[in-house]
């Protein structure tokens, strides 16, 4: 049974269809990279999965269980299973790094504060930030903020991690530290969906690459296929264009 099964998913922004008949199957521990031109629906797919945008139709299953996107209460359950990290980090500016990581387990899960803090410290150490625990977001670099955001997402122990262009807003020299963090998670068997423009990284870590255009999945395959022998003209053209840079 796949860990994540997306079946015939459709979503719109107002009257504009933005996801069309998306089907995707992800096995446990797989790292799926989603690539494609801007406006192709990559980020929207992640937003729908995490419940920020309601799907018009279709079905999402996690480990065989249908995900319910209909009510606010149901949505809060969705949030246990998916965690998302955004391009712009979106950390809570009024909280320290540690508080950013502990707040959700404390107030959403109502878990024991001391235990949550112990775990948060371990998570921040894992992303290499044990020395910045008391720093506020505006005192940290972009790469540090993004690593705090990853720790914050992991604090709820999600089943599937969604990464939405997490290095796109970073200065080039800060990209590596964030990618290293993602590599560590990959080696631990976390199931991940990664929207990324870092093609070298995608080729290295992804077990599967999804090419999207105009809200549809155009081609799916292992990195070697997508980058070296794409089967569709659209994908071939896209790969040609980005690999030239």
């Amino acid at each position: 049974m796949p860990h994540l099964a997306i079946d015939n998913l459709n979503a719109d922004y107002g009257a504009t269809p933005i996801l069309r008949d998306v089907d995707l199957s992800v096995e446990r521990g797989e790292i799926v990279a989603i690539i494609g031109p801007s406006g192709s629906g990559k980020s929207t797919l992640l937003r729908v999965l995490t419940g920020l945008l309601k799907p018009r139709s279709g079905r999402v299953e996690i480990a065989g269980e249908v995900v319910n996107y209909t009510s606010a209460a149901a949505l809060r359950k969705v949030r246990d299973r998916f965690a998302i990290v955004f391009q712009q980090y979106n950390l809570f500016q009024n909280m320290t790094a540690l508080r950013n990581v502990t707040i959700a387990p404390t107030i959403v899960k109502k878990r024991n504060a001391a235990e949550v803090e112990r775990e948060a410290r371990a998570l921040l150490e894992k992303v290499g930030l044990s020395h910045r625990i008391d720093a506020y977001p505006d005192e940290m670099s972009g790469g540090q903020q993004q690593r705090v955001a990853i720790a914050r997402a992991l604090a709820l122990k999600p089943e599937i991690l969604l990464l939405d262009e997490v290095t796109s807003a970073l200065d080039p020299e800060l990209v590596a530290e964030v990618l290293d963090t993602i590599r560590t998670l990959a080696s631990e068997g976390m199931t991940m969906l990664i929207v990324s423009h870092e093609m070298a990284f995608v080729r290295e870590v992804a077990t599967k690459v999804v090419f999207m255009a105009d809200g549809r999945i155009v081609e799916v395959g292992p990195p070697a296929q997508i980058f070296d022998a794409p089967q569709t003209e659209r994908c071939a053209e896209f790969v040609r264009r980005i690999l030239r840079h």
């Binding site: 920020l52 949030r79 955004f86 950390l91 707040i103 107030i107």
Partner: peptide
């Protein structure tokens, strides 16, 4: 109000009241 932070709170499972109390008001 930074909508992106409110969205982050939402994906972490905050209720609307929690999001106002912990994110919107302090800001």
């Amino acid at each position: 109000i930074r909508q992106a932070e409110v969205e982050a709170a939402e994906t972490l499972g905050f209720t609307r009241v929690q999001s106002i109390r912990y994110v919107v008001l302090p800001h």
